[in-house]
């Protein structure tokens, strides 16, 4: 099984079409929507993780592009600069997905990049500004 973290841009004419459910059914994919925003008469943006066989994923993304969806890999990521992090934990309640958490045994602050949806809420909240955006 392969995984893709991607950003999908939906032009206004596609917003009311069930693109994702179509893809998921046709190509037998698992999906997890990390972020989605749609504004009337504008583009819709969705950050999504798709999981399936490599062949199905490639076919599904080609199919989406043929329908007019612009597909890009999720390139923006939030990273923890460990030289700056003091492991205080000021970030843990602001993080909506618990990607940032405190190990209750060791008290170490952990960052699970797989859970991160790059919402960037932790970036200004971190006192030593250890959470950085990388492209």
């Amino acid at each position: 099984m392969a995984t893709r973290r991607i950003v999908m841009h939906f032009p206004p004419q596609l917003i009311d079409e069930p693109i994702i459910s179509g893809l998921v059914r046709t190509f037998d994919l698992e999906f997890n929507i990390l972020r989605a925003s749609i504004t009337p008469q504008q583009e819709g943006v969705m950050v999504i993780v798709l999981e399936g066989t490599e062949a199905d994923l490639v076919a599904a993304l080609r199919n989406a592009q043929e329908k007019g969806v612009r597909v890009e890999p999720l390139e923006k990521e939030v990273v923890c600069n460990e030289d700056k992090c003091t492991e205080c934990g000021a970030c843990v309640t602001i993080c909506p997905t618990q990607a940032l958490a405190i190990d209750l045994e060791t008290r170490h602050v952990t960052f699970d990049a797989d859970k991160c949806i790059a919402c960037e809420l932790c970036v200004p909240v971190c006192p030593p500004r250890a959470m950085e955006i990388s492209f």
């Binding site: 843990v92 060791t106 170490h108 006192p127």
Partner: peptide, 23 residues
């Protein structure tokens, strides 16, 4: 506080430290 959650006014509230216990 260090368990990650406290109760305030009957509600569960997640806690966040500013002091680094590791350091």
């Amino acid at each position: 506080l260090k368990s990650g959650q406290i109760e305030v006014n009957g509600r569960k509230v997640p806690t966040t430290p500013l002091s680094s216990y590791v350091k």
